[in-house]
């Protein structure tokens, strides 16, 4: 059995599915999860935007280390961290190589390093936030920020459907395999087999599209009966839905300490610029 077939056995696909489900559904007790989702989003937008406009390396390093700590408190799955560091590393290397090729020097190298630092800081912040935020709460936060009810419903419906859709997709892929024929010739770099699998992965969406359309009809009908459209047109329903969202003392503490952290960072940065 070759590598590709091994990759396609249920053992590896099942473990892949499991990783995915764990990432999406097991989110307990991480640091950021305890706060009001709106405050978390606010907090996040500070660290997602600010680094781009900061050109002081000391401040950026302080940001970076804080994010490392918060991310480690958020129990991010290894899979995602590996992906993140790998992409970052590759990005870094390719820009450096190309830049030197184009006549860049150590100054360019430093600039790229700073840029990468920003990228990683922002990425860590977002990973920490979205690995610990319950999509349900996130969707409610979006609703309270005034986004359309459909979008916020989309978030939670996605959350509801993922495992079911993945399972169905997997079974349809199996259906193709149980009737198809894997090419005997492997071809250069096994391209024939890769092409075979790629083709199935795409074609499996044909039944998926039709099956999902059938599902959607019942779902939308049920939404109608369950008063979803009614709620869209009645602000008091939205209010009721969001009534559990409350800014408590610890949310204020989070914001206050963030402000404190920012001002200290900038102060240190101005004294000891790198």
């Amino acid at each position: 059995m070759n590598y590709i077939e091994k990759l396609l056995t249920n053992v590896s696909i099942d473990s892949l599915k499991l990783t995915l489900l764990r990432t999406a559904y097991v989110k307990k007790g991480s640091f950021l999860a305890q706060f009001d989702p709106r405050i978390v989003i606010l907090w996040y937008s500070i660290f997602a935007i600010l680094p781009w406009f900061v050109h002081n390396t000391t401040v950026l390093l302080l940001f970076f280390f804080t994010m490392v700590i918060i991310a480690s408190l958020s129990r991010i799955s290894g899979f995602i961290l590996v992906m993140l560091s790998f992409t970052t590393f590759c990005n870094l290397i390719s820009i450096i190589v190309l830049t030197f090729f184009l006549g860049g020097d150590i100054e360019a190298f430093l600039a790229i390093l700073t840029l990468t630092l920003k990228l990683v800081t922002v990425a860590l912040a977002s990973v920490a936030v979205f690995a610990s935020l319950d999509p349900e709460k996130f969707s409610d936060a979006l609703l309270s920020f005034g986004l359309p009810g459909q979008v916020s419903f989309g978030v939670s419906y996605g959350y509801r459907m993922i495992p079911i859709l993945i399972e169905e997709y997997h079974q349809i892929i199996n259906s193709y395999r149980l009737r198809g024929r894997i090419p005997k010739k492997k071809g250069f770099l096994r391209w024939r087999q890769l092409f075979y699998m790629g083709k199935i992965a795409v074609l499996a969406f044909y039944p998926m599209i039709l099956n999902t359309a059938k599902r959607t009809r019942t779902t939308v009908e049920a939404l109608e009966v369950k008063g979803f459209t009614y709620a869209l047109n009645h602000p008091e329903a939205k209010k009721l839905k969001l009534s559990y969202l409350k800014v408590r003392t610890k949310d204020i503490v989070l914001l206050a300490s963030t402000c404190l952290f920012l001002s200290i960072s900038f102060y240190i940065g101005s004294i000891y610029p790198l």
């Binding site: 349900e136 779902t219 049920a222 009966v225 369950k226 009614y230 709620a231």
Partner: peptide, 22 residues
């Protein structure tokens, strides 16, 4: 019936209608 359940968790599903109707 599977597709008439629109919320991620059982409890969410059980509060959904009433909440929508206020």
């Amino acid at each position: 019936f599977e597709n008439q359940l629109v919320r991620p968790r059982v409890y969410d599903e059980l509060v959904f209608s009433r909440m929508n109707f206020g």
